[in-house]
């Protein structure tokens, strides 16, 4: 008999407490228990980065973490970054630079990019491309994504 485990952590600033099966992935918890479907499941093999969220401010792949491992920590998803009325500077930069085609990879790209820009306010295109190793765009729209991350990083530094 497998016992459920009670987890308590904050999601986008709201305290969350729930009993989960230990095998519940963080991405599953976010999407199916909390209805936060902005975090996507792409490859499910830890490679594509569509599921990237922040854990205590650092980007992680939520498909490769158990929900119980986030206990006591702060999770931020794409829903916690900005609102349609007031986009986060990185979201605005993706909008302005057309940094998306189908949009499936975009939440993960933006969450990864925000973490990157917090440590590097004026990155070179090469640095952006190296950082985005863990995010795959199968439309192959990398050129505009890199331009978006450069612009977003500069905008975040000014904000």
């Amino acid at each position: 008999m497998i016992d459920t485990v009670t987890v308590m952590f904050s999601v986008n600033g709201n305290d969350v407490s729930a009993a989960v099966e230990p095998r519940t992935l963080l991405v599953t918890f976010l999407r199916e228990h909390l209805g936060l479907t902005g975090t996507h499941i792409g490859c499910d093999t830890s490679q594509c980065g569509a599921c990237v969220v922040h854990l205590d401010g650092r980007s992680v792949k939520s498909c490769t973490m158990l929900a119980v491992q986030a206990d006591g920590q702060a999770v931020t998803t794409i829903e916690g970054l900005g609102t349609p009325e007031k986009l986060h500077p990185m979201q605005a930069a993706f909008n302005e630079n057309h940094g998306l085609q189908c949009g499936f990879c975009t939440p993960g790209m933006i969450m990864s990019a925000v973490d990157f820009a917090q440590g590097n306010p004026s990155p070179t295109p090469h640095e952006v491309r190296e950082w985005l190793e863990g995010n795959i765009c199968r439309c192959t729209g990398y050129h505009n994504i890199v331009a978006s991350v450069e612009a977003g990083a500069r905008a975040m530094a000014k904000a």
Binding site: S59, T64, S112
Partner: peptide, 9 residues
Amino acid sequence: IGDPQVRHR
């Protein structure tokens, strides 16, 4: 090693 998100964990 891996990518930034892997290196964070």
